[in-house]
């Protein structure tokens, strides 16, 4: 860990001023916001992130940690902890996919520490990114190459990758957000703006070191999830080697609006598969107007993984992803909602 100066920001204006030199997603960003710290402190110890200034924004909790569930929408303050959100009655009742995605992530301790804003910005678990002794990593050191392409890559992404980076987005909550058409509220030096959550994370496009579309100084202040006829019939299915405390090998966030036996609308996000939080719109479209049976679920899953590119160790992933999605769809269809 490199030396840094530590500062506390007690309101968002001070935070964005303090953070105006942030270059999100870049190892050499000279300023980093500190919230729960579960990613930042970890990666600073590993010498991957080397900020000269750390701006502690936990003081923003007072103004930016509330959770409001109304008939129209769910608004989540970005400084709310994962734990507080996962146990919120309105979230549990009306947005089970969100509650489950949080509940199945990390551990009780980490969920107490981690904030929602920090959680969606967590960095990949790619071992070649996290360990600076691997010389080649385009995300950490642009232009150096990608070790994962030719080394052990069991848990690397198969969707949304290119030859510059096949690292996987490791989170769960973001998969639920992307499925539910969430928006994210950003506060920056020039004020507030809302963007579609889907556009927060960038595709690699040869520049995997730039991970998000955040502007310098911008801090996530809230998430908004529109209520839909599908949000109550929603779930998050996470497949992993052990029963808990593990990143997804494969996951699916599914929300369904059913009309009798047929699908009126579907929302699908995939985790454990992709470079960034992944929305499977082709699969959603295939389901509309059709009964949710095994065959149609499989057709949708096939479409969802159609673009998969594998690299040896993760050859099994498209098949696991398809099966995960089929299981999640059938399970959601059987929910009492």
């Amino acid at each position: 860990m490199r030396p840094f100066s530590y500062e506390r920001a007690s309101d968002v204006q001070r935070a964005v001023i303090g953070g105006r030199e942030t270059r999100q997603g870049q190892t050499d960003a000279p300023v980093q916001f500190l919230a729960g710290g579960t990613t930042l402190i970890d990666l600073m110890k590993l010498d991957v992130l080397r900020p000269a200034r750390v701006v502690d924004i936990k003081g923003l909790k007072a103004a930016h940690a509330s959770i409001e569930a109304t008939p129209q929408r769910l608004r989540l303050g970005a400084l709310a902890s994962m734990a507080a959100t996962a146990r919120h009655p309105g979230v549990l009742r009306d947005y089970p996919v969100i509650a489950e995605s949080l509940q199945l992530a990390a551990s009780a301790q980490l969920r107490n520490m981690a904030t929602l804003g920090g959680n969606v910005l967590q960095r990949t678990r790619c071992p070649y990114y996290r360990d600076t002794s691997w010389a080649e990593c385009n995300k950490r050191d642009p232009g150096s190459g990608c070790t994962a392409l030719k080394s052990f890559n069991r848990n690397h992404a198969v969707l949304g990758v290119d030859d510059s980076c096949i690292s996987q987005y490791p989170g769960d909550f973001a998969v639920a957000l992307v499925a539910l058409d969430a928006a994210v509220e950003l506060t920056g030096p020039t004020g507030r703006r809302m963007i579609a959550f889907e556009t927060l994370h960038r595709p690699p496009q040869g520049k995997p070191n730039v991970e998000t579309t955040l502007m310098p100084g911008e801090v996530i202040t809230a998430f908004e999830v529109p209520a839909g006829p599908w949000t109550r019939r929603s779930l998050y299915l996470k497949i992993r080697d052990r029963s808990s405390y593990e990143f997804a090998l494969s996951s699916a966030a599914v929300a369904l609006d059913l009309n009798g036996g047929a699908v009126r609308q579907a929302r699908i996000g995939l985790g454990g598969m992709a470079y960034r939080p992944w929305r499977a719109k082709e699969a959603e479209a295939l389901l509309v107007g059709r009964p949710l049976n095994e065959g149609n679920a499989m057709a949708a899953a096939t479409a969802a993984l159609a673009g998969a590119r594998t690299h040896g160790g993760n050859d099994f992933k498209p098949e696991l992803g398809r099966r995960t999605l089929v299981r999640a769809l059938l399970q959601a269809a059987a929910m009492e909602a």
């Binding site: 500062e7 506390r8 007690s10 309101d11 936990k58 003081g59 909790k61 007072a62």
Partner: peptide, 29 residues
């Protein structure tokens, strides 16, 4: 003392951390 807690926020009970004075920094860092 950096970004001292604003007086208004200091009153809120849920923000004990923000209300507390920030640590003070010496020349050496």
């Amino acid at each position: 003392r950096l970004f001292e807690a604003a007086a208004g926020l200091a009153a809120a009970p849920a923000i004990a951390q923000a209300a507390a004075p920030a640590p003070t920094v010496r020349k050496s860092g």
